[in-house]
């Protein structure tokens, strides 16, 4: 920390270098960031690479993708590189400084992935303590565990962001070739995406079919069919019209309380 305060910091180094760079030559995207090489690591006051807060060692300053890597991704995905709105001035010196100060990860020659793509969200149902006696002889799997928490809870294998990856690894373990297992993975993921797209489309079509649209010159009238019977026997059914708006709840009213126990079972 004292080194920092005495000025032996990345910022001081950066100031000297960048100002010279800005004065002498242009900084453009294709230029390999000179600061990256010369300023090897950002120095937080802790003197560590990814720990900015001295008191909190449970916070990591996660590396950001370098500008170059982002551009590579953009080109790969977008095919044609659309430029930023013409006339808008880029905040180049600012971006240059920010990248110099932060830990970065690179897409080229990356030894480690930028981030884990298989994070499973901790479900609310799994946050409770549960005492479940299980026979030692029983093969208690992840599926069983999920079911123990809730009957509808899916096991972690299916709650992964890309559950097809588990099948891919199974294929690999089973001795399938890389090409075959990769082919299956691609097929599965494509099918999954198509399935999802179809479902969304079907839902939209179903919703649209319910509504009859009549165009007048000025307005579009939309008619929807409703069944009178939907309100149910007591007129308070949830499917009926007006349930959401203005149907009073009589649960605290005298004489409206239902299912009052009339006898005590022994």
């Amino acid at each position: 920390m004292f080194a920092w305060l005495q000025g032996k910091s990345v910022q001081m180094e950066y100031l000297a270098q960048t100002v010279a760079d800005q004065n002498n030559r242009r900084i453009d995207e294709n230029d390999k960031d000179p600061s990256i090489k010369r300023i090897s690591a950002p120095q937080y006051v802790t003197g560590e690479r990814e720990r900015p807060f001295p008191m909190n060692n449970l916070f990591k300053s996660a590396p950001v993708l370098s500008d170059r890597s982002k551009n590579i991704i953009h080109k790969k995905i977008m095919e044609e590189n659309r430029s930023v709105k013409a006339g808008r001035e880029l905040a180049k010196p600012y971006a240059y400084a920010v990248y110099a100060m932060l830990p970065k990860s690179y897409i080229e020659n990356a030894k480690e992935p930028h981030e884990n793509i298989n994070d499973v969200h901790a479900h609310r149902y799994t946050m409770q303590q549960l005492f479940l006696p299980v026979a030692e002889s029983k093969r208690f799997t992840r599926e069983d565990a999920a079911r123990a928490f809730h009957r509808n809870l899916l096991p972690a294998d299916k709650r992964l962001p890309i559950p097809e990856l588990v099948q891919y690894e199974k294929d690999r373990l089973g001795g399938k070739g890389l090409a075959d297992s990769m082919g299956r993975l691609l097929k599965d993921t494509t099918a999954m995406e198509q399935n999802m797209a179809e479902r969304i489309k079907a839902r939209e079509e179903r919703d649209a079919a319910r509504v009859t649209k009549v165009e007048s010159g000025r307005f579009q009238f939309r008619f929807q069919n409703f069944e009178v019977e939907d309100v149910g026997r007591d007129g308070r059914g949830k499917k009926g019209t007006g349930w959401r708006y203005g149907v009073p709840l009589y649960d605290r009213q005298r004489g409206h309380t239902r299912e009052v126990p009339e006898k005590v079972g022994i």
């Binding site: 990345v10 100031l15 006051v45 300053s61 600012y94 400084a97 110099a100 932060l102």
Partner: peptide, 13 residues
């Protein structure tokens, strides 16, 4: 333009 002093110490995204 140059960054404000001590900006690097708190640079986190």
């Amino acid at each position: 333009w140059s960054p404000r002093p001590f900006m690097a110490a708190f640079a986190v995204i």
